[in-house]
Write a protein that binds this DNA or RNA. Structure first.
Lengths: 262, 262
DNA sequence: CGGACCTTTGAAGACATTCAAGGCCTGTGG
DNA sequence: CCACAGGCCTTGAATGTCTTCAAAGGTCCG
């Protein structure tokens, strides 16, 4: 099986082979709290026919409702997923039964790699809001990878990115105060929204305080207090889940030095 | 390029192809604090000729001295590594300059995947004691993977394992007390030594208290105090870096329930 | 032997948690 | 449409765990 045509650009994969035509792509975001409307994959040069195929692929999966699951811990590993619009939280259950949030995923980001090692997902992934995801069957991707080397390479890079992200979180959890953790999370989300060409200062948090606190290894109360503190210091304007970053530099400084005058 | 013969068993790879003969293997441990002497790869059915090749490959890399580096943060990504004997610590430098230990690796374990994403290692890896590692050039592995699908699959699994390990650490860091973290680390090391057919109760920690504390997001003093506490409770016998686990069940209970009577 | 480094131990203090209560929003049913 | 229940979020005070600061004992290696 040889590829007639394939395009790889960052996280987009569009492949045509003589045997089968597979379009594995995920679009720019549609519309949601953090998203703007945009056309599918057109910048990658898809023609109308390809677009239909893609639409077909995407339409088959109707948007997930808030708290609806994509896969559950223990499910057989079949696919990886890309967020098209909305947001996803992934979490695992500790041996002692507690839930541990392991990641938040925004449009353009890929999740589900954790299931590869022993062919069962370790995490459960659920939608935080109305969310559409693109399912990418691993077997198909694997087949393609066997004939198209650069796809394999690309996949490996994507997995490795997950490792990098996890290790950043480890560093954050291990060596930082509550203020630093929260500043860091906000800046991270801000940066990731920029990639969607959204405002980097006005953002809407799809997750609850409880989910943030769990992710950062804190309690709900602490998260609330720190956000309150940041607001008093005019670093942020907080209105429930709407956050406006007023002084990004202050947050950056806080993240780095941990020193601050009251 | 087709493979005439290749054997994959857990983390061992031995491959022969018509074009080139590549033996990517790492042996059972030689001898060190935590190791027993053992023959190379013989259980996998290598003949004398293969064994010579393997020896050659391995001998070329002389053992690392304690604190000697395997690769450094920022180096171009070329290879992954398997620990043959000894132990490795990997760590990265936070934006604020602090060191953060991201993993300890024992014989049979593979490290270096973190460099794949952007072709430069994120972590620095150094030997904790006299250590020998097996370098596995990624390009060769990649080439082979292109002709032998199951190797690709195997590689992906190995990478995914790293994700799983990192996520376990995240859960540990986020939701546990100092006692739980340390109990968990000791049990983890104990389990990994069993895989080398070593005692699961008597173990020798190759890393310093400082490295443990950094890894677990604690201070040196806390680690020392908790070990002291465990010793007083007769869970452990601690003699510097030698640890004997006296009551494994107590540690397990501690890890799970967090409840304990004084 | 001396010095550097690691480890242990103590006491004081800081930071985050726990416990407790009240406010705010949402959705439901009367 | 309003009332009410149940979440979720915030705020306060007390507690506790871990850290910080300080000092002393050990170990390794020159």
């Amino acid at each position: 099986m040889a590829a007639d045509r394939f395009i790889i650009e960052r996280d987009f994969l569009i492949i045509e082979t003589t045997v089968k035509k597979i379009i594995v792509g995920f679009a720019k975001p549609l519309s949601c709290h953090n998203c703007r409307m945009n056309n599918f994959c057109l910048p990658l040069g898809l023609d109308a026919d390809d677009l239909d195929k893609l639409e077909e692929l995407i339409e088959r999966k109707k948007p997930l409702q808030p708290r609806e699951g994509v896969f559950f811990s223990g499910d057989p590993f079949t696919s990886i997923y890309a967020v098209r619009s909305g947001s996803i939280k992934s979490f695992c259950i500790d041996p002692d039964g507690r839930e541990q949030v392991t990641g938040f995923y925004f449009p353009g980001e890929i999740f589900g790699w954790d299931g590869l090692a022993d062919e069962h997902y370790q995490n459960t992934a659920i939608a935080l809001e109305t969310t559409s995801v693109c399912e990418i069957p691993y077997e198909q991707l694997d087949d393609l990878g066997n004939s198209i080397p650069s796809i394999q390479k690309h996949m490996m890079r994507l997995i490795s990115r997950e490792i990098n992200a996890d290790q950043r979180l480890i560093a954050l959890l291990a060596g930082n105060s509550a203020q630093q953790k929260i500043a860091s999370l906000l800046l991270s989300i801000s940066d990731r929204l920029v990639k969607q060409k959204l405002s980097s200062t006005r953002l809407w948090l799809p997750m609850s305080r409880g989910e943030i606190s769990n992710y950062l290894g804190l309690t709900v109360e602490t998260v609330s207090r720190v956000l309150g503190h940041f607001q008093r210091k005019k670093y942020l304007a907080v209105n429930k889940k709407e956050i406006e970053i007023l002084d990004k530099q202050a947050l950056r400084d806080l993240m780095l030095s941990a020193e601050e005058v009251e």
